[in-house]
Amino acid sequence: MKPVIQLENLEKTYQSGEVEVRAVRGVSLTVEAGEFVAVMGASGSGKSTMMNTIGCLDRPTGGRYLLDGVDVSVLDRDRLADIRNEKIGFVFQGFNLLSRTSAVENVELPMLYSRSGKSPADIRARALAALATVGLADRAGHFPNQLSGGQQQRVAIARALCNDPALILADEPTGNLDTRTSVEIMGVFQKLNDSGITIMMVTHEPDIAAFTKRNIVMRDVVIVTDKLVEHRHFAAAELNQPGAPQSTVTAA
């Protein structure tokens, strides 16, 4: 089976005025299907650039990037958009839902832009199914401002799921959430990963990274550590413990 992500000597240089800025220097990385990877590193370590490249939002200036066996480093803007649509689900720190648009319509968004041309009824059914997967079947008609942070992030995860992506990319998905809600969200990710979805996420918190299977640390635009998680945390177990952290945000 092909690796989901295969970076070969990835380079990214920005031209900032007269100065050339090297944002990523010769990074090679392979992520197999079914992996659950956390990327850590201080800001300026190159992790954002690497994630943007992996997410097909940006193109490398050197090296190769194969996503699901396809070399995407040579594709144009529109083909990259199609790849993002079909193969990648994004989850952002700030949720990035469309305001004044209901949860189910937010989930439908990637399917509206998909080139396969699903019928509106099919799109609605899949969106509701994705919401059910993240446990929000009863919140389909709610607007983002009627949902708690954790619920909003679940909607965002449902949106990332709906096109059956090869990879879910999460950029600090728990950055705006309290501890208990963070654990809940990690529980959702673990459940998805158990069902076979490859997940790669950026986080600053070692506690959160402990919920994944593999941790990568970047420093000064190169990967310095790449190891499997030894003492893995399991969200389901933690949430059932007595004295587990309580959510400070009540569901609307």
Partner: peptide, 9 residues
């Protein structure tokens, strides 16, 4: 957001 989830220009 629209572009991230696959909207063309």
């Amino acid at each position: 957001i629209r572009m991230a989830v696959g909207a063309h220009g």
